[in-house]
């Protein structure tokens, strides 16, 4: 187990994977949210891509493409009932990118019961890894457990502990499959966390590097 509170700073390969969209989407979203919460801006990689977009030789669109875009815009505006309120108002303040994903997930499925005091919303992000938001009601204590694969957890709101350390907004932990942990909140604090599980994918690079840096 490691608790990481300092901002990770990435090398070019990681930056390129994130900037270009090659990264496993769930891990990409996790790192985006982490950076947004830490106030880290990673503009360089995307600026390279933005400049490359300008350098593209244009490929003609169909003659009525603009008219079709306006038609779609008009259709959409009529249909839209206005943004739906989020199920849990505490999540209104999360970074915009995550907020959009949560709203879209809530429009497709509801929060599921994960045991006493525990609710989870699968964000339905494509790819092999799974990313979900976990809600721990005040005074919840989840039994000690391990995970099949590795798990990265970022505290979004509130505070929780896991039997090893305590996490506030922007803190994250990285667990390998072997470590037991016991998430819990105290009696008057609700907590939300963003959790990625690798489902046997290869986060080893990230996890190994984190462990090297932070000991343990």
């Amino acid at each position: 187990m490691i608790k990481v509170t300092t901002a990770p700073f990435m090398d070019e390969a990681t930056r390129a994977a994130l900037a270009s969209g090659r990264a496993e989407p769930a891990l990409g979203l996790f790192l985006d949210v982490l950076m947004a919460m830490r106030g880290i801006s990673e503009i360089e990689g995307e600026a390279i891509a933005g400049a490359a977009l300008e350098a593209e030789a244009p490929t003609a669109m169909k003659p009525d493409a603009l008219a079709m875009a306006f038609a779609a815009i008009d259709r959409g505006d009529q249909r839209k009932p206005g943004p739906k309120a989020m199920t849990y108002p505490e999540l209104e303040a999360v970074p915009v990118a995550l907020r959009d994903v949560i709203c879209s997930a809530e429009s497709k499925r509801s929060w599921s019961y994960g045991g006493p005091g525990l609710k989870r919303l699968d964000l339905g992000v494509p790819g092999g890894a799974k990313i979900e938001v976990i809600r721990l009601a005040a005074g919840t204590s989840v039994p000690w457990h391990t995970h099949k694969g590795q798990e990265l957890t970022l505290c979004l709101h509130g505070e929780f502990s896991d039997g090893h350390a305590t996490y506030g907004p922007g803190d994250f932990s990285a667990f390998d499959g072997a470590t037991r942990h016991q998430p819990r909140t105290d009696k008057d604090t609700v907590a939300y966390a963003l959790a990625v599980t690798d489902a046997g994918l290869r986060f080893e690079g990230v996890l190994g590097a984190l462990q090297k840096m932070f000991g343990q």
Partner: peptide, 12 residues
């Protein structure tokens, strides 16, 4: 995903 051989998070 990220190629573990290439992926490294460096300190802040």
């Amino acid at each position: 995903d990220l190629d573990p051989e290439e992926t490294m998070l460096l300190p802040a």
